[in-house]
Amino acid sequence: MKSVMVTGPGLTATVEVPAPVAGPADVLVRIRACGICGSDGMYIAVGGIPPRQGATPLGHEPAGEIVEAGAEVTGLAVGDHVVLNPMASGDGIIGSGGAQGGLNELVLIRGAQAGVHLVTVPEHVPFEVAALNEPMAVATHAVNRLEPKPGQTAVVFGAGPIGLGAAIGLKLRGVAHVVVVDVVPNRLAKALKVGADAVIDSSREDVAARLLELHGEAPRYFGRHGKPATELYLDAAGVPAVIETVLATARHGARLSIVAVHKKPISVDFGSLLTSELTIALAMGYPTEIFEVTKDLVEHWERYALIVSDVLPYTQVGRALDLAATPGAADKVVVTLP
């Protein structure tokens, strides 16, 4: 079968590898779609992930169809459309240093258990949308770290796939008003399409002033006044200006969830921040959310489908990787396999 691998620093190739063979407790999945993540670009740049340096299979956002199920497997059958939990694979994280990648033609799930390693999705959900399950689980974990309550107000910084997924998740949890902040007009337009109540172009507008207009002013507390009443902040952008804005504008008792990867240290003045009693929660991966999000994804698949900007066939996987790695060229790239 074919497998897309990192072959060296900055290099990838589609190579032939032995096709896996399913045992009595295993499931063999033919991958039908796999999203490209920003971390894939990082793996390519450094030449892979030890111990598979120079030979790292890529792709950790897969969806596919079961083509073989062992006699001991229950709750799963040949022909089922499925999404996978990359973290649960027994031979390492799929596409992130493990022995298999979601950009393989076939992926073997050893000791397959429904609800642990993979779950089924209805056939009417397109594979390229089902492949959003993994990144939307990341977004859902970031939302869960905020502990949102119905009727609250929120702002999401960054209208990439994770930010858009977080905006959808906040609205589905009953958050009354969700604002999305970005600097790219088409991303802001997409945020409104997926359900954001308002958007802010931070390259042209004062974020704090606009939040005051949209959410009103929070009650004075320990001398803190003139702050927006916004209760929830979510950083899916990963730029210092976001953290600086949140720290300067946070009302008393606000919560901040950081899911973005910050590549440089940021200075925080905890002295001036003390009276805000701001709760800062970091969000990494999806400890419980990988299949929690599937129900939302299935029920609202047409809304989630808006997140996908480019769908390319497997024969153009190199172009797909380049497109995803080029800033501003695409929002979410998904590769489809026959």
Rank of each mutant, 00 (worst) to 15 (best):
A305E: 11
E147N: 14
N85D: 15
P9E: 12
D201I: 11
M136W: 03
R251G: 03
P126M: 08
S276F: 02
A260C: 10
A248G: 15
R224I: 10
D206T: 06
L278Y: 06
P20Y: 04
Q152S: 10
A19Y: 01
T7S: 09
E299M: 12
F127D: 10
V334D: 04
A229K: 14
L118P: 00
I66H: 02
N144R: 15
L108P: 01
T249D: 02
K264P: 00
V199R: 10
A229D: 13
P126I: 06
H225C: 02
K264R: 15
A130W: 03
K193V: 11
E302D: 15
V155M: 10
E61N: 01
D182S: 13
P51N: 13
T153V: 03
H117T: 01
L103H: 13
L278H: 06
A142W: 10
P50G: 12
L188Q: 08
C37F: 05
H262P: 03
L118R: 01
E231D: 10
Q113V: 12
V178N: 07
G151Y: 08
K332C: 00
P338V: 00
V46H: 13
V82A: 05
A131I: 03
T74Y: 02
L278G: 01
K264D: 12
R52C: 05
K190R: 15
L211D: 04
K190V: 10
G41H: 06
V6E: 06
D182V: 05
I280F: 07
M42F: 13
L273R: 08
P51Q: 14
V129D: 01
V4M: 11
V175E: 11
G165N: 04
P9D: 08
G111K: 04
S203F: 07
E16Q: 14
G59N: 06
P287A: 14
A166F: 08
V6N: 06
I243V: 15
Q152D: 08
T294S: 09
L108Y: 07
P51W: 14
P126D: 07
T153N: 05
A305G: 11
A167M: 09
